[in-house]
Write a protein that binds this DNA or RNA. Structure first.
Lengths: 339, 339
DNA sequence: CTGTTAGCGCTTTCAG
DNA sequence: CTGAAAGCGCTAACAG
């Protein structure tokens, strides 16, 4: 260790400004009962030294960390940074720090341990599988919990979701009404409730439109090894390929398009492609992916509000709020308007 | 407040396992001098209750938070999540928590305050402007500091960068050698050292290849209001447009391509486009952007190691490490191999 | 209005 | 090898 400047504590500030330590604490926490002159005097010293109360002592004393946790996984799906960005903005604006856990790599252990050690006052779970252990731990620790874009059937917590089922239902309707004869559905692992709901909605939408879902046209792949790109190539290479491919989310759709392009397939001339999520890049001219859009920013803000209200004891009943999705028609379906 | 289960403390564990509180602490911190039987007994109780030591008390006592901070901005640039992901993985694997600050929104105040309150043991700054205040605060607080993909000229701290200058130099050479006659360069705000270095390298590369940089072909735009998309449209719409556009980073290149596409320009037939960074999506078939690639994962791992070593007092001299960039030739330059 | 005092839960000497 | 005891820096009664 080198010559540590030995950080100042509130005791030092008290000494330097000729008051008691308690008064320093009062000044900094903005309590009322302090004479203006005293307050001024203390603040002067505080500013001069750039003093900030030690966050840990504060947290320990008040049993509030002023931090919230966000559990993410599959960060490679661009919707995750988008959610993260919106959540961070929301929490930061409300004076909370954000601690991010990635449950992909080292699993849930770190998160569980953090939950139990009281590091955060609340937790947001974002769309992902493999977080149920942690969620359970949080629940047991009586920690406020919100899930966004993800359902925990087993767990009683606030949830912010979108109309996954209805959105997919309407999407199927759109494709059929537009005259698509042979519609495939490509999905990721169905242990994610979001993806499962969408597939279910899509199936029912097809039926409602008078089409019996063909099992051979429903695909499921893991999010790895470029599986979707390969699938895109395979689908186009097969005899009598479909004339439309709906996907569980935008990232899947993009990877399918990568495969289609690699195989020489033109979108939308040969095959239509649609996604689900409405990530920002779906709107880029060079991608222009037709998709079912979720109001991500709104959902994140709502999740943040839910969590903070619950932390502050302003809510007790759990609630599930569902945002309406909206079909965005773009180039990958030839800009064909909904009939 | 509802019926709080009143979290267990080490005192409770001690009572439950019939030892002293100090012994519990010793067992959990893995100190040697504890009889195996005692250790076993304590661990049993610990496990049974899912007990974890209170992180704040621990932090306060040891003056170490076991957390590191990462300051980011412009999260909408996909390289940021990529860096974040790699950093998070690295730190988590080494038993550190990661706290993320977004300095876009609420500026640096939150970060500065966090620095001074001792919330993190060290800090990584990622490519961004507007963080110098915070960096200075960190430096004054004697907090270990590493910058990645970003230079702080004024500050003496570890830096992990790539060969921005050389990479851009070689890129200019490539374009000229491939017969491009009129090469534009589109950049973001040049207060970012990374972007400034690239532009400088590009200029010198042109000169070395026998071309005098034409001021009218160097553009700079802010990262907002779709400025780059608009610029792409303008560039193609002008009389006698360039036959190649090099960009300060991949995101700029993509937005330029959006504008070009919107204006009816074909890439690479009409104009070549190249980026810089090597973000993952640049490699997607549907984008296939020629770019100068940085080894992001390596850089992030290195930054993490630097920071942790410094926190643990294993390093004292500051160091700048520079990774080699690599030209990735793809479709936006017609897959033309470097001569 | 301000000072004194008692811990929050933990690590770490210091004894035994 | 283990226990007792002293704080880390802060907040929150409780006095004055």
């Amino acid at each position: 260790m080198n010559t540590k400047p030995k950080k100042l504590s509130s005791v030092d500030i008290a000494r330097l400004s000729g008051v008691s330590q308690a008064t320093v604490s009062r000044v900094l926490s903005g309590s009322d009962g302090v004479k203006a002159a005293t307050k001024e005097k203390v603040m002067q010293v505080v500013k001069a030294h750039g003093y900030r109360p030690n966050a840990f002592a504060q947290a320990m004393r008040t049993n509030q960390s002023a931090a919230v946790g966000v559990a993410v996984s599959r960060v490679t799906n661009p919707i995750v940074p988008e959610i993260l960005e919106a959540l961070t903005r929301s929490f930061t604006a409300k004076g909370r720090r954000v601690v991010v856990w990635n449950t992909d790599e080292n699993g849930q252990d770190g998160l569980i341990s953090a939950i139990r050690s009281g590091l955060v006052d609340g937790l947001v779970f974002t769309a992902a599988n493999q977080q149920s252990e942690a969620a359970k731990a949080a629940h047991e620790a009586d920690m406020p919990l919100v899930s966004i874009n993800r359902s925990f059937d087993e767990l009683d917590c606030d949830q912010v979701v979108s109309t996954n089922h209805q959105g997919a239902f309407d999407l199927a309707d759109y494709l059929v009404k537009c005259g698509r004869k042979k519609v495939a559905f490509v999905n990721g692992p169905k242990d994610r409730t979001t993806l499962a709901d969408r597939e279910q909605g899509f199936r029912e939408g097809l039926r409602a439109a008078g089409i019996t879902p063909d099992p051979d046209l429903f695909f499921s792949r893991p999010f790895k090894d470029n599986a979707f790109r390969q699938l895109g190539m395979d689908i186009f290479g097969a005899d009598n390929p479909p004339d439309a491919i709906a996907c569980g989310n935008d990232l899947i759709a993009i990877q399918i398009m990568n495969g289609l392009k690699a195989a020489g397939c033109r979108v939308p001339e040969d095959i239509w492609v649609v996604g689900f999520d409405g990530i920002e890049m779906a709107g880029w001219d060079i991608i222009s992916l037709t998709t079912v859009q979720q109001p991500i920013e709104l959902m994140a803000n709502n999740a943040a509000t839910f969590l903070l209200d619950r932390i502050e004891g302003k809510r007790t009943e759990t609630e599930t709020i569902q945002y309406r999705t909206e079909l965005k028609v773009r180039e990958t379906t030839g800009f064909t308007p909904a009939p």
